[in-house]
Write a protein that binds this DNA or RNA. Sequence first.
DNA 1: GTGAAAGCGCTAACAG
DNA 2: CTGTTAGCGCTTTCAC
Lengths: 333, 333
Amino acid sequence: MATIRDVAKLAGVSVATVSRVLNKNGYVNQDTKEKVQQAIRMLQYEPNTMAKGLASRKTETLALILPNISNPFFAELGRAVEDVAQTYGYTVVLCNSDNDTDKEQKYIQIMKSRYVDGILFASHTLLTVDVVELNKSAIPLVVLDRAPLNAPCLVVRSKNNEGAKLAVQHLLDSGCTKIGHIYGPQETATAKERLIGYEEAVRAFHWYSPTLMEPGHFTIKGGMAAAEKLIQRHPDIDGIFAGNDLMALGVLKKLQQMGVSVPNQVALVGFDGIDLTTITEPEITTVAQPIYELGALSTRLLIKKIEGASVDNDTYECDVTLIPRGSTNRTRV
Amino acid sequence: MATIRDVAKLAGVSVATVSRVLNKNGYVNQDTKEKVQQAIRMLQYEPNTMAKGLASRKTETLALILPNISNPFFAELGRAVEDVAQTYGYTVVLCNSDNDTDKEQKYIQIMKSRYVDGILFASHTLLTVDVVELNKSAIPLVVLDRAPLNAPCLVVRSKNNEGAKLAVQHLLDSGCTKIGHIYGPQETATAKERLIGYEEAVRAFHWYSPTLMEPGHFTIKGGMAAAEKLIQRHPDIDGIFAGNDLMALGVLKKLQQMGVSVPNQVALVGFDGIDLTTITEPEITTVAQPIYELGALSTRLLIKKIEGASVDNDTYECDVTLIPRGSTNRTRV
DNA sequence: GTGAAAGCGCTAACAG
DNA sequence: CTGTTAGCGCTTTCAC
């Protein structure tokens, strides 16, 4: 592969000049510029990213740290991140943390030693210490889907509390008279906010009881188990709000296995808006986050930060929308 | 951040020695070694990957080119790749090609200029030209899920033809007397082989007809549309073999919408073994590929190749297994 | 406007 | 066994 020196020689200029036209900085005469570009084309010259990175301390690389790319929510997010990164000339490195603090720490370490230009953090267990540390090493960071921490950092998230209320309201509007909630791991801000939203929306009702809430671990299996418990404990439940779509999928399956008809006996709402909610029969009503947009926005903000635009460490809250579908479409009595 | 020189100074040795203990090559006295490691710890030294890459032309980075990480099959695969890569100290860069030749070419170009150590190709449209090109630039390559090309390269894939036959046989065993097939894009070797397997398995039957085959584009929507057409054309069909699970999901949904009972009126088998086949009611019988293993094996082979072990450009064929589930569990008459 | 030259941090001969 | 040193390919002052 040709080097910058080859180009310089062929164009009859110095490497500095070539570097200038490459990076479009500094003045360079129009004619020389064209000569250089000519040479670049002839040699099919491609700048060596390593060398460039070493000299400039920039790598045009983003790290995406998420729990598990197998989770469709994160897959969609990852897709968005890569799409946007790509258009800005960045490459993205994938890290599966399994929400394990140790793994996260290790990845952060590795990414630092690789001089990634920025980190997009969509894992749940990010430590405040790490944020502080990262801030100190001045490596741009965007945190996705986390509540504000004590440490200053840019956060992109959805209106979880509001979404939970939308879900409950929709169930009430569909004629439900006793609504249970299946919640995710309370270490995650997301799950917690949805739980709180639910509680705030229902606690005024006479039927409200803390036993209407059941943990489901944000997984399909967890949703199934929780649904079973909930129905056994409260056979008269006629509405379930699942804290995410994966659990909603599990709930639907379990109810069908138990011979409980959805939506007529029990109506169901999920949260997230992943595509899978449309593959079941009935399709599942869900509070949709703009998943792709979430990823795209975060990436754009991260790149802005990297490229020096002063971006405040704000929290960006994305709107959620309720998508009514079969799982709440009850034939009114 | 500390550099190798700082470490050398603190340990009272030369950078070469430090480099030696770092890379565990060349002889180095036990005592000096410990002194160096001591210094490394004290300084919290982390080697700079850029510098290392520039000097050694190795980046400990793998490129994973696949159609779309949002597809659960590829998400699972990606997860496996990253897991294995991680344990060997490699980092993986994600590329979504959308099966678009242009995008692939672009990615290959970018990955070359980034000096990735190897490329794992799981996209369908890889050109033979590219393989030749890549071979010429001596960058290790493993191709996943593609038929042998004319160009020599290492291929990892599943026994698609055999799997298709398993599927048909299972439908026959379940009492089906007329079996249709919904196939994927015929540019992809995978889809083609499954189609051929189906044909070979059924063409001897008196009921066989080419109109029993319908394209479904490997997507849920495609599966739905195909199922509808197939049932309209052959109302007496009592078994469907879908070329992948995504289409099977679509088929199931459409049949349920049409009021066709699965498995009793129509039995259904998919192909791939993605988790989603267990979230429906009934669960979908599928010919499972060892998806995770496929990814893991490819990655191991790629790394072997990178690290100089002579790996032949063989084709590795993974076994598939039929997982019988509700969608074929008919109450015999 | 353009060039010379000093690194960026590390590896890998080559001496010793 | 260990040190010296010349690069890897590019960026970036600092002169001219």
